[in-house]
């Protein structure tokens, strides 16, 4: 049936957990592109037949016309599916920039295809240039803070880092009192956890 492969792509997207990225399905994607080309060829040959019979392409409503319509619609349907696939992945990739910062972990990087990697880089650059224009890091303080400082425990060896007001040695299991804005990116990367109470 026409358009079935294309909707497989989207079913795969909709069954994956929201916000999670699966590997780019190059296989099916290319197959759908091939299908599109096949539809295009069929469409052209049907149009040619109409012209050969010296009928007006605009007004003819014969069997060739409806065949051509069906191929045209299938082509549009496939296009819509492919576009939606790219678009919805791009949305997730954008959200990754906000959650994980400018560098993606290896295991996520592997799931992107080439153009998506470019997209991530360009999006990241755009966001950074805007933030530097504003002189404000937009990705921190996603939750309005109650106190500028929080207590954190370090979960992984990070080493010496230079933060905005101090340069602590962030060894594993050590506990620190850091500025929220500094700690936030470490927490979202899973390198620290917030201590409560």
């Amino acid at each position: 049936m026409y358009g079935r492969r294309a909707s497989q792509l989207l079913k795969e997207l909709s069954t994956s957990e929201p916000g999670q990225l699966t590997s780019f399905n190059t296989d099916v994607f290319d197959q759908v592109l091939k299908e599109c080309n096949a539809h295009h060829l069929e469409l052209q040959s049907l149009m040619r037949k109409i012209q050969e019979e010296e009928l007006d392409v605009q007004t003819t409503r014969n069997a060739e016309h409806f065949g051509a319509v069906i191929h045209h619609l299938s082509l549009m349907r496939n296009k819509r599916c492919l576009m939606a696939y790219m678009y919805n992945r791009a949305e997730i990739i954008q959200s990754l920039r906000w959650k994980l910062g400018p560098v993606l972990p290896q295991e996520i990087q592997e799931k992107l295809n080439f153009s998506e990697e470019e997209y991530f880089k360009n999006y990241s650059a755009a966001l950074e240039s805007y933030a530097s224009e504003l002189e404000l890091d937009l990705t921190v303080d996603m939750v309005p803070p109650k106190d500028p400082y929080i207590k954190v425990r370090v979960l992984d060896d990070i080493g010496d880092v230079l933060l905005s007001d101090q340069s602590p040695n962030l060894a594993r299991h050590s506990i620190h009192f850091l500025k929220r804005t500094d700690a936030e990116q470490f927490i979202s990367q899973g390198l620290m956890e917030e201590l409560l109470g």
């Binding site: 916000g19 999670q20 990225l21 990754l96 959650k99 994980l100 972990p105 295991e107 996520i108 939750v143 929080i150 700690a183 936030e184 927490i187 979202s188 990367q189 899973g190 956890e193 917030e194 409560l196």
Partner: peptide, 15 residues
């Protein structure tokens, strides 16, 4: 009442 910061959910499973 509880932690308002969380690890990005996309990393959770992998670890």
């Amino acid at each position: 009442g509880g932690s308002r910061f969380e690890k990005a959910s996309i990393l959770g499973k992998k670890k």
